[in-house]
Amino acid sequence: MNVQRVLYTIDGISTWFGKAAAWLIMILMTVVCVEVVKRYLLNAPTAWIFDLDNMLYGTLFMLCGAYTLAQNAHVRGDFLYSSMRPRMQAALDLVLYVVFFVPGIAALIYAGADYAADSWRIAEHSNVTSNGPPVYHFKTVIPVAGALVMLQGVAEIIRAAVCLKTGEWPSRLHDVAETDVIEEQLAHSEYVDDESRKIAIERAKEIDEVARQRGMGGDLNT
């Protein structure tokens, strides 16, 4: 039971950072809209928007990497994987996390820290705009995101080990899923009759279920 608590704690950390970074999309959207007005209506485009857009987008996806991993939402080639028994899935995952995942993410932390430190040392600025904004903060995102993903990777390795032992994938924290919208839409529908709606909700759950098992490597804690 303790192991599950460790897993949830790590999932929680990844999710917290991921959800915090997720809001950058709203800032990005706002910045883009303001610039559209400035560029096309006021004929006064801003040069550093290029840097800012890049930094918002780059930070967003890097910091959400661990969150996505915690939700098992990184796409898998699941033609064979989905039909394997959980123990087989776990065995493969365990080996591949050590062989494929750890070296690259370790590089992000270890070489990424150097890369960012060099940038801080020379107070590196963007070469894209006049008096470009500093880029050392942005480069620091690399080791930070690497550390978060590595932490989540440890949780995934533990999950695989637990599954190898018990034959069952440990559960994950619940989070919003793509298919949630189906129930929401159906719940408010005025034009779908009750019978269809009942069948539809059942089918939606089924589809959801299938989607989760397909390469999910662990059910969601619903």
Binding site: A44, P45, T46, A47, N127, V128, T129, S130, N131
Partner: peptide, 15 residues
């Protein structure tokens, strides 16, 4: 030259 064309009034990006 980024600074130069910025001073001339353009919004300049290096690519």
């Amino acid at each position: 030259s980024i600074d130069l064309f910025t001073a001339m009034g353009a919004a300049v990006n290096a690519l």
